[in-house]
Structures are given as C-alpha cells and as structure tokens.
C-alpha cells in the first residue's frame, strides 16, 4: 500500500505530487463514505487529536472536527487567542502540555508564518497545519485542487486564476504550490498593492486586469479580502475594490465561455463576489466545503497510518 511520505502536513511545499495524488485517491473513498446513511468509520479509533487554534476559525475548525468524528477519533478542542503568547506561555509549552495528556495528532492554526514548522522541531506528534499566518493552508489547497479535479476531470493543464489579496493569503501560496505540482497553469490577479513583488518567482503569471484574467482562465478562485491581516490600507475602499475586482454576473456574461467559480470562504458577499455569482451554477463553493471534510479525513487517515 502506498504511504504518505511525511510525518506532518506542514505545507504543500514539503509534500510530493505522489502524496497529493494519494490524498485525492483516499479522499475519493471517504467522500463516498460520508454520503452513505452511516457516515462513520472506525479508522481513527483510539487516536486522539487536538485541535489547537490560536486564531479564530469557524469553518476550518468545524470541517476538521467533523472529519475527526467521521473517523471515530477522540477530539479535544483548544482555542486560545494569539495574545496568550505575550501572557506568558509559549507555543511549545502550550502544545507540550496538551501532548502530555497523550495526544497523537495536532491540528494547529496560528497567526505566525512558520509556526507549524517551528513546532514540528520540538514535538513528536504529527502536526497538521490548519493555517499559519500568511504562509500556508495546505488542506485548503488540497481540497481546492480536489474540487477542480472533480469538476474538470483533472488539474493538469488547466488554467487557474487566483483573484484578490495574494499578499495576505495563505490560501494563495498553498494553492499556487499545489496547483503547480499538479501541472496546472496559475495566474494571480489583483491590485499590485496586494501582490508580492516577487510572486513571479513561484512560476505564476501576474495580471491586474480582472477581465483579461477571466478570459484566460478555466477556473477563478476568488479570495476573501483579509482586512484583518493588513497593516496598512492597500486599496482605498471595499467599494472601489469591488468595482475593480468584484466578480459579478455582468462580467461573467461578457466572457465567451463558462468558467468555474471557487471561493475558500467565508464570502464577503458583494465585495469579491456577488450573491448571484456565488449561488450560480458556475460556482462550486459548496462542493469545496463538502470536499473539505473528505480531504481532511484522508490527510488524518494517512498521517495516522504513518504513525502506526
């Protein structure tokens, strides 16, 4: 049986294309399972997973928790504000304390880029990165690529544009790395103030004109504007952002083809995407959410197998 090559899932950059394919194949099985009347499997029985969230999250946390429940894992949830670091306890101490209670796997979200890489140097349990600052969000990238594969048959050769706040987005970086590994062509689109200067070094195209980007692509992944992660105003107003980069029906009608619309959620309706587009037949936003559970089940299952 094929095995996942890594002990952790810290980011897409650490895993191989074979690992990604293995996650997809495993997720296929789990997706069929969670659509059955009895959705639970015993795969992770006796495995204890700690969901350690140093940053707010609703959907990622729920998705992981549901995936864990479907796999029959024991779960503990720990939510701490990032300021707990300044209150005294360090990340290592916090996690070591949790691990002392015999926890096998840690799902962590943290506001600092590289926090999971750092933690992996200090603890033995498997770590799944559920988002580390502006660095990576590997399970999101996996579920996005999985959803493209499901919708279009494969990812290879497809043209995918990621629109919006590239500079503050872990979803963008993980998506770029994942899609490139799978052989897709990737473009980023947004105001220059939200695009890292050296983004082309990742092998992506850069476009500031949304219509040109949409005309080019097969799939448009509309990112959420991360107001909370911006230190300075990068554009004058949400209204103006929406004027330039908001995806609406009018723009879709101007295209002479159909494209697939994605969004990692939560959506700012009326900002990066209008309700009509988000709820249209082009949108696979809710498929992404469903696939998120299957993909996360696959990742935890594979990592648990690696542990045993």
């Amino acid at each position: 049986m094929k095995q996942f090559s890594q002990k952790h899932l810290l980011g897409i950059k650490e895993i191989s294309t074979e690992d990604i394919q293995l996650v997809f194949e495993t997720a296929d099985n789990f997706k069929s399972i969670i659509n059955r009347p009895i959705k639970k499997v015993p795969s992770l029985r006796d495995v204890t997973v700690a969901n350690v969230f140093f940053e707010n999250s609703t959907r990622t946390r729920i998705s992981f928790e549901l995936a864990q429940k479907r796999l029959s894992a024991d779960i503990i949830n720990f939510a701490a504000s990032s300021s707990s670091v300044s209150k005294g306890e360090t990340l290592i101490d916090t996690v070591k304390n949790i691990l002392a209670m015999k926890v096998d796997m840690v799902v962590m979200r943290h506001p600092a880029p590289g926090a999971c890489v750092f933690l992996a140097k200090h603890i033995d349990a498997s770590i799944i990165n559920a988002g580390d600052g502006t660095h990576e969000h590997p399970t999101q990238a996996l579920l996005d690529a999985y959803s493209i594969r499901e919708k279009l048959g494969s990812v290879k050769g497809k043209k995918i544009v990621i629109v919006g706040d590239i500079a503050h987005s872990r979803v963008a970086l993980s998506n770029i790395l994942c899609l490139k590994k799978l052989g897709a062509e990737v473009m980023v689109c947004g105001p220059n103030t939200l695009i890292p200067k050296h983004i082309a070094s990742l092998g992506v195209k850069v476009e500031t004109d949304l219509m040109k980007a949409l005309n080019w692509c097969d799939v448009a992944n509309m990112l959420r504007i991360q107001l909370e992660r911006q230190e300075q105003n990068n554009f004058p107003s949400l209204r103006e952002y929406s004027m330039m980069y908001g995806l609406n029906e009018e723009r879709l009608h101007l295209l002479n083809k159909e494209i697939v619309i994605m969004h990692p959620g939560p959506i700012n309706r009326g900002v990066e995407i209008t309700s009509a587009v988000a709820d249209s037949k082009h949108s696979i936003i809710l498929d992404q959410v469903e696939n998120g559970v299957a993909v996360r089940m696959a990742v935890m299952y594979l990592l648990a197998g690696k542990q045993a």
């Binding site: 600052g133 502006t134 660095h135 990576e136 970086l173 890292p196 983004i199 070094s201």
Partner: peptide, 10 residues
C-alpha cells in the same frame, strides 16, 4: 525576495 515570497512573509 523570492525567499520571503516562498515563506509567506512580508
């Protein structure tokens, strides 16, 4: 530079 972009840091 390329490294900061790869590491997701400004």
């Amino acid at each position: 530079g390329a490294q900061s972009t790869y590491l997701g840091m400004k």
